[in-house]
Amino acid sequence: MPAAESAAEVLVERDGAVAVLTLNRPKALNALSVPVMKALAAALESAETDEAVRAIVLAGSPRAFAAGADIGEMKDLAGSGEAEAALSEHLARWDKVGRCPKPTIAAVSGFALGGGCELALACDLIVASETAVFGQPEVQIGVIPGAGGTQRLTKAVGKALAMDMVLTGRRLTAREALAAGLVSRVVAPEALLDEAKGLARRIAELAPLAVRAAKAAAAAAADRQLDAGLARERGLFYRLFDTADQKEGMRAFAEKRPPLFKGK
């Protein structure tokens, strides 16, 4: 294994009251495998319990924030029961990011696709580099987003654009994402971490109780009926593992060939 890839899955850096968690599987385009998400959840928990941390930045690599879940871990799951048993703990880690009580900022450069897009969406706000690309391509491999994409994307960009994305796998450029309200700022790739950390520092300097209240209040609007929607999405997601198209879609993806869907 190359040295860079055998280092920790997630790097943790403390910069005053700001914790920066960096996904560290650049060669795998930060595919969100079980070990990566476990490491992320652990790092997030430490940042949550550490009273000195007031804001959290979640970053990836220049080429990819995270290009998706690890399809290899899912493609051979036999049916909905097996999928739920194998994935419920895994998917709950995205929910955990969404429930973090401290302000979370995703710093997105390059691909934020599938589970990667959902991870960014689970943060309070997204700062993007000009190279960022957002998308939920799951339908192209016979499933749907299962970590909140259908719910959070619809709330973030509205129904028409969200439908365009989840029904076709359409990707958004950073500029399109800014226009759609998916991200709040777009900067040069070289400036991304400075911008995200600067933003986190500004938040960290403000009254902690007011920040927490502001986040809770805004979340009450943004996340209204989110839990019911997430449950509905996850149920539909698991059920697709009973279909032949899920197997065909994920195998075709792994074999780098176009899938042949039959509606079964």
Binding site: V187, A188, E190, A191, D194, E195
Partner: peptide
């Protein structure tokens, strides 16, 4: 603003 970002780098 963009120039400032690049120049900072």
């Amino acid at each position: 603003e963009y120039e400032a970002q690049l120049q900072q780098f």
